[in-house]
Nucleic acid binder design. Structure first.
Lengths: 331, 331
DNA sequence: AGGCTTATGCTCATGATTAGCATAAGCCTG
DNA sequence: CAGGCTTATGCTAATCATGAGCATAAGCCT
């Protein structure tokens, strides 16, 4: 029952929403972890070792993020443990297996200033196909989907299975777009060689000749190892979670306008919401409480400032914000 | 980034539903893992080491369960990684930290026969307070809740916080009972010394005198280490999951009656459902499809046999069965 | 003053849920 | 074999939730 040859790491996905964009805390990769990627265009999630000093994994993680980026985390939940072999290409050369326990954590906007060595990266720079707030992004229709369809046709044996996965993940045919399926979409893009880190993995593969060399690689920001997959897992989880747990409020200042709240949810969900219905949902759901104070910085009629009603946690089992979707951005 | 002194284990929660009761696969504990518990009354979840032979954790786990119990697993998903210190009391004596990656898996009823060294244990023998199919179980009102309230009053400083946790977890006052909060309930019962394994942990504690020795321990089946906590996590997760993913069908034979389906959901949720509304929900939700064949073993009018409609996965983003709750068992 | 912006109240149609009632169609017993 | 038991299944009324949109309010700016 003893496993001696594993490297065990804690991994943090720290998310915030600033200026209407979801942002993730990234750090400069440890040269050790860079593997075969280019250090200039590559970023990494904060990570570090388990230490016996800390009684729980979560405390360990908080300490680690504070050390690396000077940030005191708010909400934190365990996300997933990534332990499959060859996540790190160096394992091919006999390096011990890497097992990463990843956490999803949220911070307030103002934590941005506190960051030391970390940087905040716009999540949609890393996942440009996930932002549907102004309708499906052009890159999806013009670039990714055509390539995905080509890829699906490529292998006659798996054609049907691939086509069906595409339908489900990207909302083709009778399936609606489901903003939660971030990981499924990432995995398809990875398999189709449309994300840059796939190139590194292929280069590191034992016999590069066996796999056709990828042609239509989508440029953009790269992340080390499987960190973009970890982030995809986190985004999908968070998009699901806001619907049934009041976690959005972890991302907002104590007092906020309803539009501020809406914009934050939209930034995470990557979808536009129907304004009036959104208000009704959060107000009637007992999630917020008016303070009577007004914010006149709105550019229009001043908006009332609200606070989160903590009591709702006692009253309802699943007090999420829900997503009253709008077809397009509300006029 | 190397952690040398951790023991890393895979842990399987294998669930099935037979004769209207949810059952979990348990094995005789490894003498090494027994720690301070009594081997006669103690059971364990299947567990084993990570092995470099297997490319993924999930394959590793499947192999392990097959070896230990002769069962080929169906559905499997990662549950949680338990890595806090002192999960194993022996760590106090310098034993390396134990990190367990737990999986939630489902099997068909008939897997029962295939089991070799494992046993199927009724989940509600381990969690008698969780079965509300015939209303709140007497043990809750007569035994656990009174003791919990006493415990809450015990510490004046934490009284309010504890009382509130009780309200939320057990559905007191204005909060409704939420069948998903299995883990929260377990943790309260653990803290209040109402589950047997707490005794073992206290005995192993460095200075037993610091903690008051527990009086009102609830007897019943014990599990090694924190395996009951792992199981609580699994049950809570599954109860949430059936509502938005069609996982119940993994527990049923290919063809089933709607009542069979309902009884299976009820067994997992621990709550009675409204029959007519349940039918409408699964039929109109497109989850099932009638075969035209009848089952005359029902004791009343023969019921139609249904099959799961796989296509639903393409059509709707969240095809769970939903829980049309009934106040009492339907007449 | 008039137009722009955002906030906020209200309505209407539609669909989903809850809670029952009622009937159907087997079996079993007297 | 009728009557009562069981379970299956169809149907409805009331209530509640959701999606879409209209209309008005109340700031600012020119």
């Amino acid at each position: 029952m003893l496993l001696t040859h594993a490297r065990l790491a804690l991994n943090a996905v720290v998310l915030a929403v600033t200026d209407g964009a979801p942002r993730v805390l990234t750090v400069t990769p440890d040269p050790d972890d860079l593997a075969l990627s280019d250090p200039r265009t590559c970023c990494a999630l904060p990570l570090g070792p388990l230490s016996d000093e800390h009684a729980t994994l979560e405390l360990n993680l908080r300490h680690l993020v504070f050390q690396q980026a000077g940030i005191h985390l708010g909400y934190a939940e365990q996300l997933y443990t990534f332990g499959d072999r060859l996540r790190d290409p160096r394992e091919r050369d006999g390096a011990p297996r890497l097992v990463s326990i990843a956490y999803l954590t949220l911070g307030r906007e103002d934590a941005l200033a506190a960051s030391r060595s970390g940087r905040w990266t716009n999540v949609y720079d890393l996942f440009p196909w996930e932002d549907h707030r102004d309708g499906p992004p052009p890159i999806l229709r013009d670039h990714l989907l055509p390539h995905l369809h080509t890829w699906a046709e490529q292998d006659p044996a798996r054609r049907d299975a691939r086509a069906q996965r595409l339908d489900i993940a990207f909302g083709r045919r009778d399936t609606p777009w489901d903003e939660e399926r971030v990981l499924e979409r990432y995995e398809l893009l990875y398999e189709a060689c449309l994300v840059p880190e796939r190139l590194a993995d292929l280069r590191a593969a034992a016999n590069p000749a066996a796999n056709p060399i990828p042609e239509p690689l989508h440029g953009g920001v790269a992340m080390i190892l499987d960190h973009r997959r970890i982030l995809a897992t986190a985004l999908g989880r968070l998009r699901a979670k806001i619907k049934y747990r009041p976690v959005v409020f972890e991302l907002l200042p104590e007092r906020f306008t309803l539009l501020h709240l809406q914009r934050t949810v939209e930034a995470l969900a990557g979808a536009p919401l129907h304004k009036q219905n959104f208000r009704r949902l959060v107000e009637r759901g007992g999630l917020v409480e008016g303070t009577g104070e007004l914010d006149s910085q709105t550019g229009g009629r001043p908006a009332e400032l609200f606070v989160f009603r903590t009591e709702v946690l006692r009253e309802r089992p699943d007090p999420g914000v829900g997503l009253p979707l709008a077809r397009r951005r509300d006029p």
